[in-house]
């Protein structure tokens, strides 16, 4: 499996009245062809900003990508001209967002919206595009697609709208699908439908996926690899099974300890992470997690640890070895 995407030192800031928001602070990660990467972390940790930066969709001002590289099929996405990146977006890389209603145009029918992308990117005529649109809707299991294709978005339920977004995303056979909390606003049974769908489509099409979520359960069922983010940093990165069986960062441990499991035999007491995430305008020196960390040593308060390999395909940014030793 070749590398599809290689991100190095990506750094994005927002220059606001209150000061500089350090949203993404120099992150590195790779994604292989056909692989599913889950990005987890709590609200404001930089999940959306990191992928929006890759797609060059950061509103500027106030935002700016201040450093880094993002190699996709031999080209640096961050150095492309506006025109080049536009032809990548919605074509080789597709993106779906949390709220499908805001990404669909309410005054256009489903056909008009999906067809537009096909006509624009693949040069199809109206008839071909309509036929392909119906196929795509069938592929994402919209019942009675041939008739529903002329409906407006408000005539669809939330789950159906999200499936339309996926259909639009897939219309140009992307190599990479970026999904930013696509199921967070949906009920669990509908979420299960969407996840099931994406898994099947992945098998059929072989695309890579970046799936952003704060739900550690969703990642466990979907991802091959996981990046855990905290305060604009990737603090742990591992294959999915290693991340859950052998978590190495105190924050990852904290997250896993603070969620109840549906299949828990008996009622185990939850161990919350005390305190709050740091202010990204006024970051503490040292490790960003140190003020909340149960393992913190003096060094943590002074020096920020870098992401380092601790096992095969497993890296962690922490001064302490939570398994016992000291690094």
């Amino acid at each position: 499996m070749g590398t599809l995407l290689q991100v190095k030192g990506l750094k994005t800031q927002f220059f606001t009245q209150d000061g500089v928001v350090n949203a993404v602070n120099g992150i590195d990660f790779d994604l292989n062809e056909g692989e599913t990467l889950g990005i987890v972390g709590e609200s404001g940790c930089g999940k959306s900003v990191s992928v929006l930066s890759l797609m060059r969709l950061i509103p500027s001002p106030p935002g700016r990508i201040v450093g880094g590289e993002a190699w996709f099929q031999g080209r640096d996405l961050l150095k492309m001209s506006e025109e080049e990146i536009r032809s990548v977006r919605g074509n080789k890389i597709a993106m779906i967002f949390q709220d499908p209603m805001t990404s669909l145009n309410p005054v256009l029918t489903i056909n008009q919206q999906v067809s537009e992308a096909l006509e624009l990117h693949l040069g199809m005529d109206k008839r071909q595009a309509r036929k392909r649109t119906i196929e795509l809707l069938e592929m994402v299991r919209i019942p009675d697609a041939a008739n529903r294709v002329d409906d407006y978005p408000h005539q669809f339920s939330g789950g159906m709208r999200q499936r339309v977004m996926i259909a639009m995303g897939l219309s140009c056979n992307p190599q990479l699908l970026i999904a930013d909390e696509p199921t967070t606003a949906l009920d669990v049974t509908i979420q299960a439908q969407i996840i099931d769908l994406v898994k099947q489509l992945k098998k059929e099409i072989g695309m890579a996926v970046i799936w952003i979520t704060h739900d550690l359960g969703v990642v466990a069922g979907l991802a091959d690899r996981v990046n855990v983010m905290y305060a604009g940093y990737i603090v742990e990165s591992a294959d999915v099974k290693d991340m859950y069986a052998d978590p190495r960062h105190p924050y990852t441990l904290g997250l896993l300890g603070s969620i109840p499991r549906l299949d828990a035999e008996r009622k185990a007491k939850l161990t919350p992470i005390e305190g709050l995430p740091p202010d990204l305008i006024d970051m503490p020196p040292g490790c960003p997690f140190a003020p909340r960390c149960r393992y913190a040593i003096d060094r943590c308060l002074e020096e920020n640890p870098k992401l380092e390999t601790v096992a095969r395909r497993h890296s962690v940014a922490c001064w302490v070895d939570v398994t016992g030793g000291k690094r």
């Binding site: 049974t189 299960a192 359960g217 466990a220 069922g221 859950y244 896993l256 499991r261 549906l262 299949d263």
Partner: peptide, 14 residues
């Protein structure tokens, strides 16, 4: 159905 749809944070179980 509801129970089966709830993701469990454990890839081996999932």
């Amino acid at each position: 159905a509801l129970l089966s749809a709830v993701p469990i944070p454990d890839p081996v179980v999932e």
